[in-house]
Structures are given as structure tokens and as C-alpha cells.
Design a protein around this nucleic acid. Structure first.
Lengths: 203, 203
DNA sequence: GCGGGCATTGCGGATTTCCACAATATGCGT
DNA sequence: ACGCATATTGTGGAAATCCGCAATGCCCGC
């Protein structure tokens, strides 16, 4: 699937200017003038990144962000925010947005962030699909994380894992969250599917 | 892996008598005189069924049952119970035990239950390991169950699935529980692994 | 010594999952 | 008409998951 920078902003001038800037850096763009318009074409399989303005008529940027997040969006999201909306942008950051940029902004800085977001997306997609990269990902886990992962893959409850490894449940949660992050997954199902070709397992 | 009827009862006479009975019906048996003894050799990969007395010194039958259940035990469990312990046995039934039998009991009746439990275990193991049988399992699902399963496999939250299918979250839960039962799995991870050879998915 | 990574843990709160119990409606086969 | 399967929904409560915030300790490299 072709990777695009998806530009969602109801200000035509800004969107066009951004599009021009990014395409001059070799980045393919697609523009949408409203959150609703983008949501209608969004799918979990999209590749690239999302550049999302906070203030829009109709559905706002944060609202779109939340909806996409609930639906399992994996595109890195860069928030465009005015000076007064930084708290809102920080909130999105805390919810997993890739970054935020205040308007008006330095052109090169924004383009660089977009390119970096595209790279991140590519890396995550590669990790999700390539067995060789999966081995690399597994090797990047600490011993503890690997032990937790093995048990997550057998469907055990956190408290059972905690009991077996003689650690607290909170620690299991910490390792679990970290290993999901390193493996580029959000759920145990995804992890199981990622490792489906690894029948021997990491153990 | 060889399937056994695992007999856990601290009464030697009963255990031996049971063992004799079942082996005369062609069922391989292994006996344990305490819950602790059996727990020490238990593994999720055991095949067969468990015949478990309620009242034992040290760890009780229900205690063992709960521990095994938490650890993902799949063996069907038949509870042996005295006349006064029926409520305890019923409680285990509600937690997923296969059946309970009151002592003293009709020999053929107990043997029949054990044989049936062994068959169930075999069926479940076959379902969990054979791609042909997996197709059969998928075909046994209702349309709604299949729709829910597709979305469970993408890691979506129940409330997101409910939104997409325009039904209540409770209904998603109902379908989810039913499809897990039909597919012979207990968790979404197990389901994902079961379907790992079905890259096209049920959709 | 300092910083970073790793491992561990607790607390509190929010969200999600799970399910017993209960109920209604529809369609189909006997 | 009756029974069964399927689909749907609500209530309430328990358990599990998730994570921010905070903290400590150990090891290793600079």
C-alpha cells in the first residue's frame, strides 16, 4: 500500500501550502478539508502518517484522534496546533500522538517530523509483516520481557504470570506494556498473529 | 500425548478400585493420592480427564480445581462428591467442571462419564490442532458470531465492535462467549493462534 | 560520581471484560 | 401450538486490565 501524508485541515490555503512543501520533499500527500471526510476513507490498513489540525468546523481534531485511536489506528499522528491550544495537543501526545507542531511553524521542521513519522510507520509495518524483523524485535526484548511474552502467548492471566515469575502483578503489567511497545503491537491478539510464523516461540 | 484418566483421591482403596474399573474399560489411568502430588506434574498439555475427589487432606479438590482453572487447565474435570458435599460440587460445575458424581456410585455410570470426558478432550484437542477441523468449527458459527470473531481478531474493543455492528456491548459479549465456546478456545490469543493458518480469515 | 537502563513495587482510579439472571422477539421444524 | 436456536438487551457485580505517578535499588559505562 502506498504511504501518504494525510493532511486534515479545513483551511485550504494551509493544506495546499503544506502539500506543496511535502511534495517538494518527495512525500506523497492527500488532503482532506474535514475530519469527517478523512474518517470516511480511513482504514486500519492505511500507510503513512496523519497531519491533523486541532481546530476545525464539525468534528474537531481531538475528536477524530480519539475515534481513530479506538478503532485501532496505527498511523503516526502529528497535531497542528495554534498557540492557545497547546494543552489540547499535549493531551493528544499523552494518548499516543507522534508529535505536535505549533502554527505558524518552520517549514523544514514540520517536513522533517512528517518524514520521521513516515519512517516510523514503515518500520512498524515491516516489523508486523517480516519474520526476519520479528526476530530482531524479539532479540531486543529483555529476559524478563521475553518471559512475560511467552506466558502472554499462552493466554495466562497477569496474576498467574506474576505467580509463576514470583513478581508483582504491577511488574507484569510494566513488562507487558514494554514488550508490546517493542514488538510494535497493541494487543495480545496482534502479538499472537505477529508470531504466528514463529512456532518454536522465543523460549 | 497419551490420554489418561487422572485419578486424584487420598483414599487408596477408592482410587485403586476406580483404576481397575476404568482399565477394564480400556481407559489408561494414573493415580495421585493428593492434590499437591497431581499439581506438581500437571501441565497444560496433559491429555485425558481429571477425576477429582472433593474431600482430601491438605489441598482440597475445589482448591486444586480453582488453581488449575486459573492456570488454563483444559482437562475435563469430574468431581467425586459425598452426599453432603453436593453444593460444593455444583459450584465447581458452575465454574466449568465437566460433571460430578456422588459416591458411592454406579460403576458403569462413572466409567461412562469418564469415557465421555475423554472424548470431549480429544475433540477439543483435535479442534485446536487440525486445520480441516478448524474450517468445520468456523462453519458452525452463526453469521453474527463470525462477524464478531473477525473483529475480535483485529483486536478491537467490544464497544467498538458493538458500534460497528450497531448492537449493544452486551450482545457482543454474548456472541463472543459463544464463538469462543464453539471454537474451543478461552482467550482471543488462543483464537488467533488457532486461526494462524487461515490467513484469508473467515471474512 | 553521574546518568541511563532495567527490575521491582505500591497506590489509586478508570476502563474493559466477563457473566449470572432475566427477558423479548423471530424463524423454523415437528 | 410447541420447542429450539438465534438475536437482542438490560442490570448489577466481580474480576481483570491498564496506567499515571511515585519510588527504590542494582549494574554498567563514561
Amino acid at each position: 500500500m502506498t504511504a501518504y501524508a494525510y493532511l486534515v485541515d479545513d483551511d485550504d490555503a494551509i493544506r495546499d501550502s503544506l502539500s506543496w512543501l511535502l511534495e517538494s520533499r518527495g512525500v506523497a500527500c492527500q488532503g482532506y478539508s474535514s475530519a469527517e471526510e478523512f474518517l470516511a476513507v480511513w482504514s486500519p490498513a492505511l500507510a503513512g502518517c496523519l497531519v491533523l489540525d486541532i481546530r476545525m468546523d464539525g468534528m474537531s481534531g481531538p475528536e477524530l484522534f480519539d475515534i481513530l485511536r479506538e478503532r485501532g489506528n496505527k498511523l503516526p499522528v502529528i497535531i497542528l496546533t495554534g498557540h492557545g491550544d497547546v494543552p489540547m495537543a499535549v493531551s493528544a501526545l499523552k494518548k499516543g500522538a507522534f508529535d505536535f507542531v505549533e502554527k505558524p511553524c518552520n517549514d523544514n521542521e514540520l517536513a522533517n517530523r512528517v518524514i520521521e513519522a513516515l519512517k516510523l510507520d514503515e518500520t512498524q509495518r515491516l516489523a508486523a509483516s517480516g519474520n526476519v524483523s520479528v526476530n530482531t524485535l524479539i532479540d531486543s526484548l529483555t529476559t524478563r520481557e521475553q518471559q512475560v511474552m511467552e506466558r502472554v502467548l499462552t493466554g495466562k492471566l497477569n496474576k498467574v504470570i506474576a505467580d509463576e515469575l514470583r513478581i508483582s502483578m504491577r511488574t507484569v503489567e510494566v513488562h507487558r506494556a514494554k514488550l508490546f511497545e517493542k514488538m510494535g503491537v497493541r494487543t495480545a491478539v496482534e502479538l499472537a498473529q505477529l508470531l504466528a510464523g514463529k512456532r518454536g516461540g522465543p523460549g
